[in-house]
């Protein structure tokens, strides 16, 4: 899977073709063919994404009453969010949530992928087991973990850990930590499988060669694995970032924003305003803010990978 900055042409364009062939059929290649091939995809994406996002932008600039658009209010809805400490607190928590989840999920996926890449007995079994959370929906994941972590009747027995009671849902920091843990649990399998796939393209001979050189595993990882994995890690980072910023169902079911508002994320604000409180305009403003964060992070990754390529 590649996501790269579109302005930069692919590194290995499989052209020019041999000159003879190129001359042979230069004009018979239908000029409209590529457009015809690409058009259906663009059209479907445009109808389902672009019209609604324009619609949402418009909503965010209006006062709404249930599903009715009322007065144009300019940026008032945004001002209500960005002008309040609660709004910034949500943004801050979203950033913590996303960054901490990434910081856990990516190294973990890389590590597990590395393990799964080595010949081992029951490799298929391990792969199937480790990737299983991938097919668990967010609702179910949240419910199961809520139960596991419950201090009173959870099977992990957190009510009495060497005499101390650990109630993660009563403590703001622990609740956020638990939320991040569950988030990582449902999202690392996709990252792992992408990393695993990328690892398989690294020729074993390269690693052997570095062994001969006497390089330790960490040097090898830094000199060989990491550079070759960079494009994949970039894709993984983008996919996970989008997933995390936009996460609603998991948070709603796991903590619903509590305790003490400690897990109130921008995505949850967007959901509540739109679907629980019927403030569609304000809800749209929250989701546009999410959109902006997605773009900013996406652009930052693109910039990062480009500068790495230069250096």
């Amino acid at each position: 899977m590649t996501v790269k900055s579109p302005e930069a042409p692919p590194v290995r364009e499989h052209r020019p073709v041999p000159a003879v062939q190129a001359r042979r059929r230069p004009s018979t290649r239908p000029r409209l063919l590529p457009y015809g091939l690409l058009l259906p995809a663009v059209v479907v994406v445009a109808v389902v994404s672009v019209f609604p996002i324009v619609f949402a932008l418009n909503l965010s600039l209006h006062e709404t009453r249930f599903t009715q658009l009322e007065d144009f209010v300019g940026l008032d809805n945004y001002a209500a969010i960005l002008g309040s400490s609660a709004g910034w607190a949500s943004i801050g928590r979203s950033l913590i949530y996303v960054v901490a989840s990434l910081a856990l999920a990516i190294p973990m996926s890389l590590g597990i992928a590395h393990l799964l890449n080595r010949p081992a007995r029951f490799r298929l079994v391990f792969r199937a087991l480790i990737l299983m959370p991938w097919v668990i929906s967010q609702t179910v994941a949240a419910l199961l973990w809520r139960w596991l972590l419950n201090a009173d009747y959870g099977p992990l027995g957190l009510g009495d850990v060497a005499g101390t009671r650990i109630d993660v849902f009563a403590d703001p920091v622990q609740a956020m930590a638990a939320l991040i843990l569950v988030n990582v649990w449902i999202s690392y399998p996709l990252a792992t499988i992408l990393c695993l796939a990328a690892l398989q393209t690294i020729p074993a001979e390269l690693e052997e060669a570095s062994d001969v050189d006497g390089a330790g595993p960490f040097t090898r990882f830094r000199r060989i694995t990491l550079p070759m994995m960079a494009p994949t890690l970039f894709v993984v980072a983008i996919l996970l970032t989008l997933l995390y910023f936009n996460m609603v169902t998991l948070v709603l079911t796991f903590t619903a924003g509590g305790p003490f508002g400690a897990t109130q994320l921008v995505s949850l604000d967007a959901f509540n305003e739109s679907f629980s409180f019927f403030n569609l305009g304000l809800g749209a403003a929250y989701s546009v803010i999410l959109f902006v964060f997605n773009i900013v992070f996406g652009a930052a990754y693109i910039k990062l990978i480009r500068s790495e390529g230069d250096g």
Partner: peptide, 18 residues
């Protein structure tokens, strides 16, 4: 000045007509 979302959706959908 009120316009239901529905009407706007209808206009846009008709315009796209896809």
């Amino acid at each position: 000045r009120r316009a239901t979302l529905l009407r706007r959706a209808a206009v846009a959908a008709a315009a796209l007509g896809l």
